[in-house]
Amino acid sequence: MTSEITLFVNPTAGRGRGAHAAQPAASALRAAGFRVRTVSGQDPGDALARARAAVAEGTGALVAVGGDGVAHLALQAVAGTDTPLGLVAVGTGNDFARALGLPVRDPAEAGRVIAEGLKGDGVREVDLGRAGDRWFGTVLASGFDSRVNDRGNRMRRPAGRFTYDLAMLAELAAFRPFPYRLTLDGGEVREIEATLVAVGNGASYGGGMRICPGADLGDGLFDITVVGDCSRRTLLRVFPTVYRGTHVRHPKVTVHRAARVEIAAEGITGYADGEPLGPLPLSVRCVPGAVRVVGR
Protein backbone atom coordinates (compact mmCIF):
# COMPACT_ATOMS: atom_id res chain seq x y z
CA MET A 1 0.00 0.00 0.00
CA THR A 2 1.27 3.46 -0.88
CA SER A 3 2.10 5.76 2.03
CA GLU A 4 0.12 8.63 0.49
CA ILE A 5 -3.27 9.25 2.08
CA THR A 6 -5.98 11.48 0.61
CA LEU A 7 -8.09 13.63 2.90
CA PHE A 8 -11.48 14.22 1.32
CA VAL A 9 -12.77 17.34 3.05
CA ASN A 10 -16.20 18.94 3.26
CA PRO A 11 -15.35 22.42 4.59
CA THR A 12 -19.00 23.17 5.46
CA ALA A 13 -19.68 20.03 7.54
CA GLY A 14 -20.88 20.71 11.07
CA ARG A 15 -21.04 24.49 10.46
CA GLY A 16 -17.37 24.65 9.46
CA ARG A 17 -15.96 21.87 11.62
CA GLY A 18 -14.88 19.97 8.50
CA ALA A 19 -12.31 22.57 7.52
CA HIS A 20 -10.98 22.89 11.07
CA ALA A 21 -10.80 19.11 11.55
CA ALA A 22 -8.60 18.43 8.55
CA GLN A 23 -5.44 19.82 10.16
CA PRO A 24 -5.33 17.71 13.37
CA ALA A 25 -6.30 14.62 11.40
CA ALA A 26 -3.56 15.29 8.85
CA SER A 27 -1.03 15.94 11.62
CA ALA A 28 -1.81 12.58 13.24
CA LEU A 29 -1.40 10.79 9.92
CA ARG A 30 1.88 12.57 9.14
CA ALA A 31 3.20 11.77 12.61
CA ALA A 32 2.62 8.10 11.77
CA GLY A 33 4.74 8.43 8.62
CA PHE A 34 2.08 8.98 5.96
CA ARG A 35 2.16 11.59 3.24
CA VAL A 36 -1.11 13.48 3.15
CA ARG A 37 -2.80 15.45 0.40
CA THR A 38 -6.19 17.14 0.57
CA VAL A 39 -8.96 17.21 -2.01
CA SER A 40 -12.22 19.13 -1.87
CA GLY A 41 -14.51 20.52 -4.56
CA GLN A 42 -16.62 23.43 -5.68
CA ASP A 43 -19.82 21.33 -5.41
CA PRO A 44 -20.71 17.68 -4.72
CA GLY A 45 -20.19 16.62 -8.34
CA ASP A 46 -16.75 18.22 -8.51
CA ALA A 47 -15.79 16.80 -5.12
CA LEU A 48 -16.81 13.28 -6.15
CA ALA A 49 -14.85 13.55 -9.40
CA ARG A 50 -11.75 14.53 -7.44
CA ALA A 51 -12.23 11.68 -4.96
CA ARG A 52 -12.64 9.17 -7.77
CA ALA A 53 -9.51 10.50 -9.45
CA ALA A 54 -7.53 10.00 -6.22
CA VAL A 55 -8.76 6.41 -5.98
CA ALA A 56 -7.93 5.75 -9.63
CA GLU A 57 -4.44 7.16 -9.09
CA GLY A 58 -3.83 4.60 -6.33
CA THR A 59 -4.10 6.56 -3.08
CA GLY A 60 -3.42 4.41 -0.03
CA ALA A 61 -6.71 5.39 1.57
CA LEU A 62 -9.49 7.93 1.16
CA VAL A 63 -10.21 9.64 4.46
CA ALA A 64 -13.52 11.52 4.51
CA VAL A 65 -13.53 14.55 6.84
CA GLY A 66 -17.02 15.79 7.63
CA GLY A 67 -20.35 14.17 8.38
CA ASP A 68 -22.58 11.58 6.77
CA GLY A 69 -22.91 13.68 3.62
CA VAL A 70 -19.22 13.57 2.79
CA ALA A 71 -19.04 9.93 3.91
CA HIS A 72 -21.86 9.19 1.45
CA LEU A 73 -19.93 10.92 -1.35
CA ALA A 74 -16.76 9.05 -0.43
CA LEU A 75 -18.61 5.74 -0.62
CA GLN A 76 -19.43 6.46 -4.26
CA ALA A 77 -15.68 6.69 -4.92
CA VAL A 78 -14.39 3.68 -2.97
CA ALA A 79 -17.20 1.09 -3.00
CA GLY A 80 -16.23 -1.94 -5.02
CA THR A 81 -12.52 -1.01 -5.02
CA ASP A 82 -9.60 -2.07 -2.84
CA THR A 83 -9.09 1.46 -1.50
CA PRO A 84 -9.82 1.66 2.24
CA LEU A 85 -12.15 4.34 3.59
CA GLY A 86 -11.38 6.23 6.79
CA LEU A 87 -13.79 8.60 8.53
CA VAL A 88 -12.98 11.72 10.52
CA ALA A 89 -16.53 12.34 11.72
CA VAL A 90 -17.17 15.99 12.60
CA GLY A 91 -20.55 16.59 11.00
CA THR A 92 -24.03 16.86 12.45
CA GLY A 93 -25.11 13.22 12.26
CA ASN A 94 -21.98 11.01 12.06
CA ASP A 95 -24.12 7.88 12.01
CA PHE A 96 -21.85 5.85 9.74
CA ALA A 97 -18.88 6.52 12.01
CA ARG A 98 -20.98 5.43 14.99
CA ALA A 99 -21.91 2.22 13.19
CA LEU A 100 -18.20 1.52 12.65
CA GLY A 101 -17.30 2.32 16.28
CA LEU A 102 -15.07 5.25 15.25
CA PRO A 103 -14.36 8.46 17.21
CA VAL A 104 -16.89 11.25 16.74
CA ARG A 105 -15.90 14.95 16.81
CA ASP A 106 -12.31 14.13 17.83
CA PRO A 107 -10.31 14.56 14.60
CA ALA A 108 -6.88 14.01 16.15
CA GLU A 109 -7.99 10.72 17.72
CA ALA A 110 -9.71 9.68 14.49
CA GLY A 111 -6.46 10.38 12.62
CA ARG A 112 -4.53 8.22 15.09
CA VAL A 113 -7.07 5.37 14.81
CA ILE A 114 -6.89 5.48 11.01
CA ALA A 115 -3.07 5.51 11.06
CA GLU A 116 -2.94 2.55 13.43
CA GLY A 117 -5.51 0.68 11.37
CA LEU A 118 -3.64 1.18 8.11
CA LYS A 119 -0.35 0.11 9.67
CA GLY A 120 -1.84 -2.87 11.49
CA ASP A 121 -4.84 -5.10 10.89
CA GLY A 122 -7.52 -2.45 11.24
CA VAL A 123 -8.94 -2.69 7.71
CA ARG A 124 -12.11 -4.76 7.34
CA GLU A 125 -14.90 -5.26 4.85
CA VAL A 126 -18.46 -4.16 5.61
CA ASP A 127 -21.74 -4.30 3.73
CA LEU A 128 -23.36 -1.43 1.88
CA GLY A 129 -26.81 -0.80 0.51
CA ARG A 130 -27.26 -0.01 -3.16
CA ALA A 131 -30.16 1.76 -4.84
CA GLY A 132 -29.61 2.00 -8.58
CA ASP A 133 -26.07 3.37 -8.91
CA ARG A 134 -26.00 4.90 -5.40
CA TRP A 135 -24.30 3.28 -2.44
CA PHE A 136 -25.26 3.97 1.18
CA GLY A 137 -23.86 2.97 4.54
CA THR A 138 -26.56 3.65 7.12
CA VAL A 139 -30.33 3.86 6.60
CA LEU A 140 -32.72 4.44 3.71
CA ALA A 141 -35.59 6.48 5.13
CA SER A 142 -39.06 6.78 3.60
CA GLY A 143 -42.33 8.17 4.90
CA PHE A 144 -42.78 10.47 7.85
CA ASP A 145 -39.03 10.60 8.52
CA SER A 146 -38.20 11.52 4.91
CA ARG A 147 -40.90 14.22 5.00
CA VAL A 148 -39.20 15.54 8.13
CA ASN A 149 -35.89 15.41 6.26
CA ASP A 150 -37.45 17.46 3.46
CA ARG A 151 -38.58 20.08 5.95
CA GLY A 152 -35.35 20.01 7.97
CA ASN A 153 -33.29 20.65 4.85
CA ARG A 154 -35.30 23.81 4.28
CA MET A 155 -34.67 25.07 7.83
CA ARG A 156 -31.64 27.23 8.59
CA ARG A 157 -31.94 27.18 12.39
CA PRO A 158 -31.33 25.61 14.81
CA ALA A 159 -28.38 23.36 14.00
CA GLY A 160 -27.82 19.69 14.70
CA ARG A 161 -30.29 17.17 16.06
CA PHE A 162 -32.66 19.92 17.19
CA THR A 163 -33.34 20.72 13.53
CA TYR A 164 -34.74 17.23 13.10
CA ASP A 165 -36.79 17.48 16.30
CA LEU A 166 -38.38 20.79 15.32
CA ALA A 167 -38.99 19.65 11.75
CA MET A 168 -40.74 16.57 13.12
CA LEU A 169 -43.05 18.66 15.29
CA ALA A 170 -43.91 20.89 12.33
CA GLU A 171 -44.58 17.91 10.07
CA LEU A 172 -46.99 16.45 12.64
CA ALA A 173 -49.52 19.10 11.62
CA ALA A 174 -50.00 17.30 8.31
CA PHE A 175 -49.40 13.82 9.69
CA ARG A 176 -51.08 10.81 8.11
CA PRO A 177 -50.05 7.22 7.42
CA PHE A 178 -49.09 6.34 3.85
CA PRO A 179 -50.18 3.37 1.71
CA TYR A 180 -47.08 1.33 0.88
CA ARG A 181 -46.30 -1.64 -1.31
CA LEU A 182 -43.38 -3.56 0.20
CA THR A 183 -41.62 -6.57 -1.34
CA LEU A 184 -38.89 -8.50 0.49
CA ASP A 185 -36.46 -10.80 -1.32
CA GLY A 186 -38.75 -11.10 -4.33
CA GLY A 187 -41.65 -12.47 -2.30
CA GLU A 188 -45.27 -11.42 -2.29
CA VAL A 189 -46.19 -7.74 -2.43
CA ARG A 190 -47.34 -6.52 0.97
CA GLU A 191 -49.83 -3.68 0.88
CA ILE A 192 -49.66 -1.84 4.19
CA GLU A 193 -50.56 1.44 5.83
CA ALA A 194 -47.44 2.76 7.54
CA THR A 195 -46.03 5.89 9.09
CA LEU A 196 -42.57 5.06 7.78
CA VAL A 197 -40.44 2.27 6.38
CA ALA A 198 -36.70 2.39 7.19
CA VAL A 199 -34.20 0.05 5.52
CA GLY A 200 -31.14 -0.24 7.72
CA ASN A 201 -27.69 -1.38 6.74
CA GLY A 202 -26.55 0.46 9.87
CA ALA A 203 -28.54 1.04 13.03
CA SER A 204 -29.05 4.80 13.19
CA TYR A 205 -29.83 7.99 11.32
CA GLY A 206 -30.53 11.60 12.23
CA GLY A 207 -27.61 11.85 14.65
CA GLY A 208 -28.11 8.74 16.78
CA MET A 209 -31.75 7.75 16.25
CA ARG A 210 -31.52 3.95 16.42
CA ILE A 211 -34.36 3.27 14.01
CA CYS A 212 -32.95 -0.18 13.07
CA PRO A 213 -31.20 -1.11 16.34
CA GLY A 214 -30.42 -4.69 15.35
CA ALA A 215 -28.77 -3.86 12.03
CA ASP A 216 -25.37 -5.47 11.49
CA LEU A 217 -22.88 -4.14 8.91
CA GLY A 218 -21.50 -7.61 8.31
CA ASP A 219 -24.46 -9.99 8.00
CA GLY A 220 -25.40 -9.41 4.36
CA LEU A 221 -28.95 -8.37 5.30
CA PHE A 222 -30.96 -5.23 5.92
CA ASP A 223 -33.09 -4.69 8.99
CA ILE A 224 -36.38 -3.17 7.80
CA THR A 225 -38.31 -1.26 10.45
CA VAL A 226 -41.97 -0.61 9.70
CA VAL A 227 -43.87 1.81 11.92
CA GLY A 228 -47.54 1.10 11.29
CA ASP A 229 -50.59 3.33 11.02
CA CYS A 230 -50.26 4.97 14.41
CA SER A 231 -51.88 8.17 15.67
CA ARG A 232 -50.10 11.44 16.39
CA ARG A 233 -50.31 10.71 20.10
CA THR A 234 -48.74 7.27 19.65
CA LEU A 235 -46.01 8.65 17.40
CA LEU A 236 -45.14 11.33 19.98
CA ARG A 237 -45.03 8.69 22.70
CA VAL A 238 -42.86 6.32 20.66
CA PHE A 239 -40.51 8.93 19.17
CA PRO A 240 -38.25 9.49 22.24
CA THR A 241 -37.61 5.75 22.53
CA VAL A 242 -36.00 5.70 19.06
CA TYR A 243 -32.78 7.09 20.56
CA ARG A 244 -32.54 3.95 22.71
CA GLY A 245 -33.83 1.61 20.03
CA THR A 246 -36.62 0.36 22.28
CA HIS A 247 -39.38 1.52 19.90
CA VAL A 248 -39.19 -1.91 18.25
CA ARG A 249 -41.05 -3.31 21.29
CA HIS A 250 -44.15 -1.28 20.47
CA PRO A 251 -47.02 -3.28 18.91
CA LYS A 252 -47.25 -0.83 16.00
CA VAL A 253 -43.61 -1.53 15.03
CA THR A 254 -42.46 -4.58 13.10
CA VAL A 255 -38.95 -5.54 11.97
CA HIS A 256 -38.09 -7.69 8.97
CA ARG A 257 -34.78 -8.91 7.55
CA ALA A 258 -34.01 -9.22 3.86
CA ALA A 259 -31.22 -8.76 1.33
CA ARG A 260 -33.45 -7.10 -1.31
CA VAL A 261 -36.24 -4.64 -0.70
CA GLU A 262 -38.65 -2.89 -3.06
CA ILE A 263 -40.60 0.05 -1.62
CA ALA A 264 -43.38 1.93 -3.38
CA ALA A 265 -45.56 4.80 -2.15
CA GLU A 266 -46.98 7.93 -3.74
CA GLY A 267 -45.46 11.32 -2.97
CA ILE A 268 -42.58 10.02 -0.86
CA THR A 269 -38.87 10.76 -1.36
CA GLY A 270 -36.29 8.20 -0.26
CA TYR A 271 -33.26 9.42 1.67
CA ALA A 272 -30.10 7.41 2.37
CA ASP A 273 -27.30 8.60 4.67
CA GLY A 274 -29.42 11.75 4.94
CA GLU A 275 -29.08 12.40 1.19
CA PRO A 276 -32.04 12.38 -1.22
CA LEU A 277 -32.14 9.38 -3.56
CA GLY A 278 -35.32 10.33 -5.39
CA PRO A 279 -39.02 9.51 -5.31
CA LEU A 280 -40.33 6.05 -4.54
CA PRO A 281 -40.57 3.38 -5.88
CA LEU A 282 -37.01 2.33 -5.07
CA SER A 283 -35.35 -1.07 -5.25
CA VAL A 284 -32.42 -1.62 -2.90
CA ARG A 285 -30.11 -4.50 -2.19
CA CYS A 286 -27.52 -5.28 0.46
CA VAL A 287 -24.08 -5.91 -1.04
CA PRO A 288 -21.85 -7.96 1.31
CA GLY A 289 -18.29 -6.72 1.81
CA ALA A 290 -18.77 -3.83 -0.62
CA VAL A 291 -16.27 -1.48 1.01
CA ARG A 292 -13.06 -1.73 3.03
CA VAL A 293 -13.08 0.52 6.09
CA VAL A 294 -10.39 1.54 8.54
CA GLY A 295 -11.11 1.46 12.25
CA ARG A 296 -10.73 -0.30 15.51
Rank of each mutant, 00 (worst) to 15 (best):
D150N: 13
D150C: 11
D150A: 13
N153T: 08
N153M: 09
M155Q: 13
R156Q: 15
R156C: 12
R156G: 14
R157F: 06
R157L: 15
R157D: 14
R157M: 13
R157Q: 14
P158K: 08
P158M: 15
A159T: 13
A159E: 15
G160R: 12
R161Q: 11
R161D: 12
F162I: 14
F162G: 10
F162E: 15
T163F: 15
T163K: 15
T163G: 12
D165T: 13
D165G: 10
L166F: 08
L166E: 11
A167I: 08
M168W: 09
M168R: 10
L169N: 06
A170Q: 15
E171Y: 06
L172G: 07
L172M: 14
L172C: 09
A173C: 06
A174T: 14
F175E: 03
F175L: 00
F175N: 01
F175T: 02
F175Y: 01
P177C: 01
P177E: 06
P177Y: 05
F178D: 12
F178K: 08
P179A: 11
Y180A: 10
R181Q: 10
R181D: 01
R181E: 07
L182A: 02
L182E: 02
L182I: 02
L182N: 01
L182D: 00
L182W: 04
T183P: 12
L184C: 11
D185S: 02
D185F: 02
D185T: 04
G186P: 07
G186N: 04
G186D: 12
G187I: 04
G187K: 04
G187E: 05
G187W: 02
E188T: 06
V189Y: 02
V189M: 08
V189T: 06
V189H: 03
V189F: 03
V189P: 04
R190K: 13
R190N: 08
I192V: 13
I192Y: 03
I192C: 12
E193K: 13
E193G: 04
A194D: 00
A194H: 08
L196G: 09
L196S: 10
V197Q: 07
A198F: 06
A198E: 12
A198H: 09
A198I: 05
A198T: 09
V199C: 10
G200V: 00
G200D: 03
N201T: 03
N201A: 09
G202A: 14
G202C: 05
A203F: 00
Y205R: 05
Y205D: 05
G207P: 06
G207D: 00
G207Q: 01
G208D: 07
M209H: 05
I211D: 12
C212L: 05
C212Y: 03
C212P: 06
P213Y: 01
G214I: 09
D216A: 04
D216Q: 07
D216H: 02
L217P: 04
L217S: 00
L217H: 00
G220M: 02
L221D: 03
F222A: 00
F222Q: 01
T225P: 05
V226M: 11
V226P: 11
V226A: 07
V227D: 08
G228D: 00
